[in-house]
Design a protein around this nucleic acid. Structure first.
Length: 569
RNA sequence: CGGGACGUGGCGCAGUUUGGUAGCGCACCUCGCCUGGGACGAGGGGGUCGCAGGUUCGAAUCCUGUCGUCCCGACCA
């Protein structure tokens, strides 16, 4: 490709509506443009990177036994009604009717479509396992699209679905995908961690998120400083903290005027915060009250709370009247004296506490010498707290470190949630009808591109890994109007192309500064410069974008050197 | 959806307070000159100031409405 034929409109200034670095750099490098809120054009340079990422994904999916296919983006409502998600998915699903009044949605995901396809075709365990995937646009009408490709409404996703005859088979498919994902993100040159994750609305069994480590990320993950345990903040399990053994004293009600926060309580009673019990009151969408108790210095993990409540999809902060109706008192809450039938969830750390302080369900009063194992009745004890830096790893006990990351892929062991709901069954070896055991595995392609930029850039622009760079090498004649230089550059360009190197010739009649700035901004891994000096010597100047290292190489040796260098970039 | 901000040539912005008929930098076109890190000179093209009403002799500027965009929050395979 010649730069004079390339549509790559670079920008000197950063467009005002781009907030994060990857978005700004992609706009400035002429890789993408915005079309509408949460929707983007990929320009030729950006599309080359997208296609390279897709190709890596494709190769690894195929190697793991996947077969590529393509499903419609417009999906009939009836499949979603069968799975029950038509009612659950909410406003994020873009719904529409055709001229006959039939209802459809723009596919936010394809579990229903693939399950309906496969149930009609797969009859026997002999056809299993089966892994089908596509790389296709998805659409989710996000409440708030932001950060360019990180959270767009229309986005490219690879989604693979596995079908197995039993859980062992599913676990094997899951493992294959886990390994394939590891290979994919490694090949993209990313620093990432697979982390244990919550399943969210998709349901099913275990799950991992593949998270690229970057400060601009929206996800927070806990990584053990010693072993390889890593989990999303929502998922990270926590063992109960032991409390020092004390002789339980008698429960005592004390006046604590105006202490409706933990901070004010701690200073009023002059006690360590670890001696206090904090309450958070929620209401479910069925308007049931849920009281959650954690130690004063801990935070509630709402996802863990949700897991304790059968059939509940959403929590909101409870209204004062609801709390009062159950016998509680906002700011002074305790499990002691709450009406029977209220959900009371208590973190195990709280159950270990001795002679602690909790509210007394009466304004301006607290209980002292609360011993939860003695005093709390009809409570559910479960891990409910949110992980924080320094908490012990559930596997080895070493402290965890909190890191930010960008979730670029997630794998789910679904089980039979969709196959059972939609009647996707097969006959097993015993001739018995069984639901297919499924897994689903997604990768955000655009997000992977954005994550790569977030992780690798400098003040001059993007620094691509060779594997996903729009071009591997750029050849730059310093003077684009000097015929000798141009001819020399053309020859080099031809040689590189012949050798199978993905090369761009910057033959624009621009001044050298302009071309160099563009090279750095776009981030080609290697730049070969031809100027008066190199022309005279019969050499080329090689510049490595990543390190800034520059050296001259003879015409005889440069090709080998370039190929050797590319392997390391 | 709640809170905040902003819409003026392709991009970045000034002008709005105090109404008087649109300006700067970059980019673009032509000519000259220059060629190892976003040159220079001369000339030139391009904007009914998001849109719709209203006030006024007169509106980018004031009023009302509306649409769009961005940020924070809530939300999220």
């Amino acid at each position: 490709m010649r730069a004079t034929n390339l549509y790559a409109p670079t920008l000197r200034q950063t467009p005002a509506d781009a907030e994060i670095l990857s978005h700004q750099l992609m706009l400035r490098a002429g890789m993408m443009r915005k079309s509408a809120n949460g929707m983007y054009h990929f320009l030729p340079l950006g599309w080359r990177t997208i296609r390279k990422i897709e190709q890596i994904i494709r190769e690894e999916m195929d190697a793991a036994g996947g077969q590529e296919m393509c499903m419609p983006i417009l999906q009939p409502a009836e499949y979603w009604q069968e799975s029950g998600r038509w009612a659950v998915y909410g406003a994020e699903m873009m719904r529409m009717k055709d001229r006959h009044g039939h209802e459809y949605c723009l596919g936010p995901t394809h579990e229903e479509m693939i399950t309906s396809l496969v149930r009609d075709e797969v009859r026997s365990y002999k056809q299993l396992p089966l892994m089908l995937y596509q790389i296709q646009d998805k659409f989710r009408d996000e409440r708030r699209p932001r950060f360019g490709l990180m959270r767009s409404r229309e986005f490219i996703m690879k989604d693979l679905y596995s079908f197995d005859k039993d859980v062992e088979g599913m676990n094997l498919s899951y493992r294959k995908m886990y390994d394939a994902y590891t290979a994919i993100f490694s090949r993209c040159g990313l620093e990432f961690r697979p982390v244990e994750a919550d399943n969210g609305a998709i349901g099913g069994g275990h799950s991992h998120e593949f998270t690229v480590l970057a400060d601009a990320g929206e996800s927070s993950i806990a990584c053990c400083t010693k072993c390889d345990y890593a989990a999303s903040d929502e998922k990270a399990e926590l063992a109960p903290v032991e409390a020092p053994d004390e002789e339980p004293r008698e429960l005592e009600k004390v006046a604590t005027p105006g202490t409706n926060t933990i901070e004010s309580l701690v200073s009023f009673l002059n006690i360590p915060i670890e001696k206090t019990i904090k309450a958070v009151a929620y209401e479910t969408e069925q308007n049931a009250l849920v009281l959650v108790f954690v130690r004063g210095d801990h935070e509630v993990n709402e996802v863990k709370v949700l897991h304790q409540l059968e059939g509940v999809l959403e929590l909101r902060m409870a209204e004062e009247e609801t709390i009062r109706a159950a016998g509680g008192c906002p700011g002074f809450m305790s499990p002691i004296g709450i009406k029977k039938g209220t959900h009371i969830l208590v973190d195990p750390t709280v159950m270990n506490m001795k002679n602690a302080v909790s509210g007394a369900n009466e304004t301006d009063f607290h209980y002292k010498n609360v011993n939860p194992s003695r005093d709390f009745k009809d409570v559910v004890v479960a891990d409910l707290r949110l992980v924080r830096e320094g908490d012990p790893c559930p596997h080895c006990g070493a402290p965890v470190k909190m890191t930010r990351g960008i979730e670029v892929g997630q794998v789910f062991a679904l089980g039979t949630k969709y196959s059972a709901a939609m009647g996707a069954t097969f006959l097993n070896e015993q001739g018995k009808e069984k639901p297919l055991v499924m897994g689903c595995y997604g990768i955000g392609v655009g997000r992977t591109m954005a994550a790569a930029i977030e992780q690798s850039n400098d003040e001059h622009g993007i620094i691509w890994s060779r594997s996903i760079a729009p071009f591997e090498v750029v050849v730059v004649p310093v003077n684009g109007k000097n015929e000798e230089q141009l001819r020399y550059a053309e020859e080099v360009y031809g040689e590189l192309k012949k050798a199978g190197v993905d090369v761009l010739l910057d033959d624009r009649p621009e001044r050298p500064g302009v071309k160099f700035k563009d090279c750095d901004l776009i981030g080609y891994p290697l730049r070969l410069t031809i100027g008066p000096k190199t022309l005279e010597e019969g050499t080329l100047e090689v510049k490595i974008r990543k390190t800034g290292e520059m050296f001259h190489e003879t015409r005889e040796n440069y090709l080998g050197k370039v190929q050797e260098l590319l392997k390391t970039l």
